[in-house]
């Protein structure tokens, strides 16, 4: 993209050009409304996709932009889910306040752990994120008086959204709710990556040593983006808890951390839409193959991972971008 800037473009125009809304983007967001009319029986699935996409978006901020590999991102998703679930059980079932509470708790824990995260890189970082994820999973398992342990949290009851829209069986409200939250969070993330801070994150990803050499406080940047990412992941978790009215230990599992990584890598990390695209493909495929044993499902996921790493290093969106570049180059 950057290489193709024509002569006579001022620096300011160049930067504006990079942040401009493209037609595909607008078309995409309009298309997210289609499930309401085209596949009204699949709105629950659509809602799950939106939630997963939001979770993947949160991971993209730290992994795709700042280059922080996490094998335990489900920790924040799960925190959000349990917070929303417990809130409805012990305080009230009003969804929006539940969402805010989940965001706050996930953000607080994210902020606290960000001090650890920011100190490490490479292998140690991978192990720490893995360890923290496992730790939280195990803690929720042990604290069965609060979380219900392996049986899941019982008695989650969510009030109608805005006091008017009940969470129906078809998932109309669920999808509308998830989609709106996804779109809002997407706007935040899009703004963030096109800000000076977003540029700094890409700098950390590209070369952390050089970042220090231009005077950048890498650790404080990492802490900030990690906290923001935790908030968004927590919101995604809360959406899942509220729209399905269940919370099980699975929200904190290593599989969920691995899944979201797969989804993001499949779609293309560091591309904003990568997580969304990955979520659509992954969730639809999973739904189509829901007949097969989940054990075997992971065989194909594993194969997919190997294939993506070996053949499609920048995910589907990266592959598409390269294809488009070549095509345009050929035309010129």
């Amino acid at each position: 993209m950057a290489g193709a800037a024509p002569e006579g473009v001022t620096p300011h125009q160049y930067l504006e050009n990079q942040t401009r809304w493209r037609r595909v983007e607008i078309a995409f967001w309009l298309a997210t409304l289609l499930p309401f009319v085209v596949t009204p029986t699949y709105l629950s699935l659509a809602s799950q996709i939106a939630i997963t996409a939001l979770f993947a978006l949160s991971l993209d901020l730290i992994l795709g932009y700042a280059g922080i590999v996490s094998l335990g991102h489900a920790a924040f998703f799960g925190l959000g889910a349990y917070t929303a679930g417990l809130m409805s059980k012990f305080v009230w079932g009003e969804p929006l306040t539940g969402l805010v509470a989940a965001a706050a708790i996930a953000g607080l824990v994210g902020f606290a752990t960000s001090f650890i995260i920011a100190r490490f890189r490479h292998l140690a970082l991978i192990m720490i994120t893995l360890g923290l994820g496992l730790l939280l999973h195990e803690a929720a398992n042990s604290a069965s008086w609060l979380t219900g342990g392996a049986d899941g949290l019982q008695g989650v009851d969510i009030w109608p959204l805005l006091g008017a829209f009940k969470f129906d069986l078809y998932g109309r409200t669920a999808y509308a709710y998830s989609l709106v939250v996804l779109a809002l969070m997407f706007l935040v993330a899009r703004r963030l990556i096109h800000s000076p801070f977003g540029l700094a994150l890409r700098g950390i990803r590209e070369n952390a040593v050089r970042m220090s050499a231009i005077g950048a406080p890498n650790r404080s940047h990492v802490r900030k983006v990690y906290t923001i990412s935790a908030v968004i992941a927590g919101i995604a978790g809360a959406l899942l808890a509220q729209t399905t009215e269940t919370v099980s230990l699975e929200v904190l599992s290593f599989e969920r951390s691995a899944d979201v990584l797969v989804i993001l890598i499949l779609g293309g990390a560091g591309r904003l839409y990568g997580g969304i695209l990955g979520a659509i493909i992954y969730m639809v495929a999973r739904d189509q193959f829901s007949g097969i044993n989940p054990q075997f499902w992971y065989f194909w996921i594993g194969l997919l991972l190997v294939a993506v790493v070996m053949l499609l290093p920048n995910g589907i969106l990266g592959g598409l971008a390269r294809f488009a570049e070549r095509w345009q180059g050929g035309r010129r």
């Binding site: 590999v69 991978i126 691995a258 054990q295 075997f296 065989f299 594993g302 194969l303 991972l305 790493v309």
Partner: peptide, 23 residues
């Protein structure tokens, strides 16, 4: 390659081995 790619590849192999053993 990056540690991320190494992780992803080997996690993929773990998934496949687990599924194959279960099969």
């Amino acid at each position: 390659a990056s540690e991320l790619d190494q992780c992803l590849l080997t996690i993929g192999i773990v998934f496949m081995s687990v599924a194959a053993a279960a099969y």
